[in-house]
Design a protein around this nucleic acid. Structure first.
Length: 590
RNA sequence: GAGGAUGUAGCUCAAUUGGUUAGAGCACCGGCCUGUCACGCCGGAGGUUGCGGGUUCGAGCCCCGUCAUCCUCGCCA
């Protein structure tokens, strides 16, 4: 076998005259009859190999047989290219390898799509996923997986240097009631009993704190059996971590070191610490969601006072039902959005239950639009002032419930910012969102549910509200938001049994039920649990952000489709009846 | 569970109002070519228009069903 002495990205003019062997795939063949060029590709690069008649007819004959994606070994002499014949597009473009020997390791049928980077049209994703082994051979995919590897390495190194210990936790665990739907694994040995794949290593990492591993981390696979989205897969990866003997500020400060290292590595930016912070309540008011993209402004404004002064029935009835009247001002959008575009915007928020969208174009003298007549000159002036609106701007107003107006306006804000190019798509903005609510009221179940999980520590100054006004209690929870994406999130945990019981009772759990559901953790917490807290970074999402991707499948080697299928392997598939019998399982199909 | 989009040659796409034999570029195959690097030139082959049914003199196009993929809501931290 012709074993490589160099990779296809390694040769340059300093190696001229050396005899080398390259291994790789034929990227493209250019057959000039008397002279044959081969671009040879591996994951390091592309090197041009030239077959010349001097090398003998048998070699030329063999070279003529070569086709795209043949796997070969080539021996030859590194040779400086002739004056004016260099290729500045290739890192190896100064040289070429003049072939003296050729070994074809494997031939390849015409591939279903082209691997070469010179191809402009992207094959459709279904095909790419079916032939993932070819898709991943494409240089663009290889650079993504390499970036992913670099991020994992950086995280491991940084965490280790901060004295975190990597510990693996089980994939086969126990189903717990809170959170997402579990993937279940039947037990052969225990009929009718099931393991659950971890939604996250949450409980194990708290137990590791009790065990004295005061700084733990893991690049952990997590599983959630919920419907998929462009940025959601049934299995995904987190950088999971937990720290002991810390408070809120300690976790944030420690993690900012990691964030700073990541930013430096992937954007070259020297992040100023501490990172900016925004309270949940302010974020909801100013941006309508808890993960605002702060690369641009276009903040939401409350307009209740102005709405009250109009005779506009839509506003009046909204205020009477204690709903919100809020809006935003899109700079320079009045011209760019036709009546049809505005109808499309209106349509887009009906998805969230919005009944309509009030739009006003800011002109030199007045505001115009179908509902402008409800706004007196005085109110128009106040509206302008509130948004600091300029001629040519577009004011959009939604009158609806807190939830509907927030969802509608935050979605409009994101869409308009993108369409109006209000930010540099290559820029990065990092911020913490803090002081999340501890609990949310579940109207269906008629009880409080934990926003994060039942072990989240309330803010000390809000503890007294647990008895009087639980909905107002804020948590020691924090999210890291990068460019409008939730990149990480975490909490300080409760290590005080009195507070824990109080939270359980608010959640409607008796101590017996809590014991039954979380007994092993409660037991561990009793045996000397240190104060602790931690967080988890969405690893795939970080790769997406730094690779500039808008789809999570692009940064996962073997992802699932929207219905959770693996088009390459055919998973999920059927199994033999015998396997089912061993597992004590009978399906409804049988 | 729901809504929307897409499905035509190996790939990326086109095909007027339902009307002749469904086209193009790339890839592929054959021939020619000693400096290409998106090589070039000449020639060729390649189609169950996702699948099933219906309407019609006639369906890639209209209708019904179904499958797959994508996006979104619900769901999910």
């Amino acid at each position: 076998m012709l074993k490589r002495t160099h990779t296809c990205g390694a040769l340059n003019a300093t190696k001229a005259g050396e005899t080398v062997i390259l291994n790789g795939w034929v990227d493209v063949r250019r057959d000039h009859g008397g002279l044959i060029f081969i671009d040879l590709r591996d994951r390091y690069g592309i090197t041009q190999v030239v077959f010349e008649p001097d090398a003998g007819e048998p070699l030329m004959e063999a070279a003529r047989e070569l086709r795209s994606e043949f796997v070969i070994g080539v021996q030859g002499t590194v040779s400086r290219r002739l004056e004016g014949k260099t290729n500045p597009k290739l890192a190896t473009g100064e040289i070429e390898v003049r072939a003296t020997k050729l070994e074809v390791f494997n031939r390849c049928p015409t591939p279903p799509f082209e691997i070469s980077a010179t191809t402009s049209a992207e094959p459709n994703e279904e095909l790419r996923l079916s032939y993932r082994f070819l898709d991943l051979r494409r240089p663009s995919m290889q650079s993504i997986l390499l970036l992913r590897h670099r991020l994992a390495q950086l995280m491991r190194n940084t965490m280790s240097s901060l004295d975190f210990v990597e510990v693996e936790t089980p994939m086969l665990g126990r189903s717990t009631p809170e959170g997402a739907r579990d993937f279940l694994v039947p037990s052969r040995v225990h009929p009718s009993h099931f393991y659950a794949l971890p939604q996250s290593p949450q409980l194990y990492k708290q137990i590791l704190m009790v065990a004295g591993y005061d700084r733990y981390f893991q690049i952990a696979r997590c599983f959630r059996d919920e419907d998929l989205r462009a940025n959601r897969q049934p299995e995904f990866t987190q950088l999971d971590l937990e720290m002991s003997f810390v408070e809120f500020e300690d976790v944030l400060a420690t993690m900012e070191n990691l964030v700073q290292a990541i930013a430096k590595e992937f954007t070259g930016e020297a992040l100023q610490l501490p990172l900016p912070r925004l309270e949940y309540h302010d974020s909801m008011e100013r941006f309508g969601n808890d993960r605002p993209d702060l690369r641009y402004g276009m903040e939401l404004k409350d307009l209740a006072d102005l709405a009250a002064k109009t005779d506009f029935q839509v506003f009046k009835s909204a205020l009477e039902s204690n709903n919100r009247v809020r809006g935003l001002c899109a700079p320079g959008a009045a011209e760019k959005y036709s009546r049809k575009d505005l109808d499309a915007l209106t349509e887009s928020i009906k998805l969230f239950g919005a009944k309509g969208l009030v739009w006003l174009k800011v002109e030199a003298e007045t505001l115009t639009g179908p509902t402008a007549k409800f706004f007196t000159p005085e109110i128009q002036a106040e509206l302008r002032a509130r948004f600091d609106a300029k001629t040519g701007d577009l004011i959009l107003i939604v009158a609806d419930t807190q939830s509907v107006s927030s969802q509608s306006l935050s979605t409009l804000r994101i869409r308009l910012a993108s369409e109006l190019k209000l930010y540099d798509p290559k820029a990065f903005h990092y911020s913490w969102i803090i002081k999340f609510p501890l609990l949310a009221w579940d109207a269906e179940e008629n009880r409080w549910v934990a926003e994060h999980h039942p072990f989240t520590m309330p803010l000390p100054e809000d503890l007294h509200l647990l008895d009087t006004d639980p909905g107002k209690v804020r948590a020691q929870a924090y999210d890291l938001v990068i460019n409008g994406e939730e990149a990480a999130g975490g909490t300080i945990r409760i290590h005080d049994s009195a507070i824990q019981s109080k939270v359980f009772s608010l959640l409607g759990l008796t101590s017996e039920q809590a014991e039954e559901k979380f007994g092993f953790l409660l037991s561990a917490l009793k045996f000397g649990a240190p104060p602790h807290g931690g967080m988890a970074f969405g690893f795939d999402r970080l790769v997406m952000l730094y690779a500039g991707l808008d789809n999570i499948r692009e940064c996962i080697a073997f992802p699932k489709t929207a219905k959770g299928a693996d088009l390459m392997t055919g998973a999920p598939g059927t199994v033999d009846l015998r396997q089912l019998r061993e597992l004590h399982i009978r399906t409804t199909e049988q």
